[in-house]
Amino acid sequence: MTPAASPAIRIGSTEIIALADGVGPFPFTSREAAFPDASAAQWAAVDRFDPGAVDGEGRWSLNFRAFAIRGPKGVTVVDAGIGPADAPASWAPLPGKLPESLAAAGIDPAEVDTVVLTHLHTDHVGWAVVAEGAVTTSGDGPSTGLSAFFPNAEYLIQQAEFDAVDTLNPQLRETLIDPLRASDQLRLLDGDTPLRAGRVVATPGHTPGHQSVIVADGRESVLITGDLLVNAIQLLYPELAYVFEMDRETARRSRERLLRSGGGALLHVASSHLTEPFVPAP
């Protein structure tokens, strides 16, 4: 079934589109154990802000999504979701639905000119490189090798993330990095970098080379977070650490720098994992 029209927000002449890929429970730990410093009062505030983040069995429920930035100068996709049936994010609700969400938004993968991978965790790179022929969510079809799902796009990763791939997930060197280098589609960044619409901002901490994307027009902006925050508790209380952050203090500084420096501007947060794709920064 083709998804309904994807939620979107417009900033000036640029449209930011949320691309759903799946929904499922977080399998590794409870949310309380994931944020051990959070208080009962803080969780009560989170439940008011994002009640859909707890499923009927009391488990932490995650949305998995990517974002498209569509403007006069082209189409950028931020993150690549959980992937097809044979993707390495076996803990997530595979197969993902990103191809259908792209189609619902009227985006052909061939027209995407830039893919920003916020970091190299498997639920953010699943559709980046796929088995040739595996362009649907069924996972069926002949496989003669690996190729970029977005065949005409440049893929952007921070140099620090590239350098840490063997620590993050050695498998990704063969299944992601090498195919993108072979097709000359991999571009390594060193810090903040302008895009055709918006800019990449280095936000290390969750991983060594984590990056986010900001699209701004006047005093209004959208922050596409990646895993700068993974639960609404970090949006409401950016100082709280997440146990799976590789450098918790650096991650805290990255969050606070972007979420607490608005100066009265209107900031929309576009998150990978919250129930709603677009929420106003508190």
Rank of each mutant, 00 (worst) to 15 (best):
V115T: 04
A110S: 14
D247Y: 08
P194E: 14
P280H: 13
S272V: 13
I69M: 08
P36G: 11
L274H: 02
L274I: 05
I82G: 01
T207K: 06
V130M: 01
P280R: 15
T76A: 12
V279Y: 11
W60H: 14
E15T: 14
D227M: 06
G126C: 09
G264D: 10
A41Q: 14
N169F: 12
I157D: 03
D140T: 12
A281Y: 05
L229P: 01
G58W: 01
G96A: 05
A92Q: 13
D47M: 07
F28M: 10
G22D: 06
T144V: 08
G191A: 13
K97N: 08
D123I: 01
F64Y: 15
A85P: 02
P72H: 13
Q42F: 04
D227I: 02
V243A: 11
R255M: 02
S39N: 03
L117E: 06
V129N: 02
G81L: 01
V112D: 00
D140A: 12
D86C: 09
A131L: 05
R65V: 09
N63I: 04
L229K: 09
G83P: 09
R260C: 12
Q159N: 12
S138H: 11
E57P: 00
L189R: 00
I233C: 05
L19S: 10
D123L: 03
P95Q: 12
G218L: 05
G205Y: 01
N63S: 15
M1T: 11
F162I: 03
F64S: 02
K73F: 06
V78F: 09
H273V: 03
V116S: 07
P3D: 09
V130L: 10
V201S: 00
Y155R: 08
I107H: 00
Q42M: 14
P142C: 07
L266K: 11
L188D: 10
R253K: 14
V125S: 10
Q42G: 10
R48V: 12
R255T: 04
L172M: 15
H268K: 08
D79Q: 12
H210K: 07
F67A: 07
P280Q: 11
L229R: 02
V46W: 08
S143F: 04
I214L: 15
T275M: 06
A92K: 06
R181L: 14
G145E: 14
A40D: 13
V23C: 07
P3C: 03
E15I: 01
S254E: 02
G83T: 03
I82E: 10
V213M: 09
I82F: 05
L172V: 06
F28E: 14
W91A: 11
D217W: 01
L266A: 14
T275H: 11
A105F: 10
S271W: 07
D123Q: 08
Q234E: 15
V116Y: 08
P3H: 05
S147H: 11
G83L: 11
P179N: 13
G139Q: 00
T250C: 10
E239P: 04
F150C: 05
V222H: 02
I9N: 02
P99S: 03
D21Y: 07
L188S: 13
T193C: 11
A4H: 07
